Simulated assay, not measured.
Amino acid sequence: MGTTQLDHQPEPKYRHLKTVLSRALDTEFSVGQALPNERELAARFGVARATLRQALDQLELEGRLQRRRGVGTTVAPPRVGVDVSPRQHTWPGAPGDTWVASDAVRTTPPPAVARALDVPAEEPVEVVHRTLIAHGQPVAAEQLHIPVDVLPPGDEPRGTSGAERARAVLARLGRLDLGGQDRSVELGSAGSDDARRLDRLPGSAVLIVTTRYVAGGRTVAVAVATYRADTCRLTFGNQASGSQAPLSLSAS
């Protein structure tokens, strides 16, 4: 990676540096290759480390770089396309669902989720934890909240937590007649739990997709999925009818 004078540029230094670094990523580095450390890069380009971090932050948001504990900054693979349109119209855990259920516990939901489910804030609900894996890495983590009283009668899940309990809860949920679902998306930052599950640093940019499932005229489940903004490209659209091309949404 060659040196470049960044003084006297008509645009902010970090933007020009981002352009220079992006060009180097295309020509001098391969996917997975580590960049020099911040001190070396700042000295090479003659900028303050704060300016360098601004440029690196932008490249991470655009999906060009990844930062991982104990690894440093590496060149990111192409973003994974994740279809979040409701065209499949199925319950979580239905055949063909690629999410992996890892745990289920009965606990009180966040206030916003309790309001969406129309349950008292202190009332425990079933919370199923699931992870989406793509190209061998976790790209999304989900918490699916289900009021206990909506689950059809059946064998109580064994144990107080674990993957077996999660699968049992999803199986009971799948017996309901799904009436509809809707989704919303917002940009956020990873909390400590999501960062750990997604192998990210706390505060990293994420895309938060909230899905509301309806059955029998009421909301019976709310899923809050956290997608890595550096690796995911969410797609939407009426793909079932073919009348509208999917819309790509990225965090760049």
Rank of each mutant, 00 (worst) to 15 (best):
T108Q: 12
E60F: 05
E142I: 10
D118P: 03
V119A: 03
G180T: 08
G159W: 04
E142L: 10
A140R: 04
Q66N: 11
G70N: 03
Q88K: 13
Q58D: 12
V128R: 03
D118E: 11
E156P: 11
P157I: 05
R69M: 05
G162S: 00
V75I: 08
L59C: 04
Q54K: 06
R64T: 00
T73Q: 03
P77W: 14
L176Q: 03
Q181M: 13
Q66K: 07
S102C: 14
V84L: 09
Q58R: 06
V148C: 07
A116W: 00
D83G: 02
R115Y: 00
G93S: 09
R158N: 01
R53Y: 07
V80F: 14
E60G: 02
Q181I: 04
T107Q: 11
L151M: 05
V105D: 04
L144N: 11
R87Y: 15
P92E: 12
R183Q: 10
R175L: 15
R172P: 07
R165A: 01
G136R: 04
T107D: 11
P157A: 07
S102I: 15
P110S: 04
R53N: 06
R64M: 01
Q88D: 15
E142Y: 11
A141M: 03
R130M: 07
G72T: 10
P109H: 08
P157M: 08
G154P: 08
V113L: 09
P124T: 07
A166D: 05
S161P: 00
R158F: 08
H145I: 05
E122K: 04
G174I: 02
E62L: 01
H89T: 13
G96W: 11
E60L: 08
P95F: 12
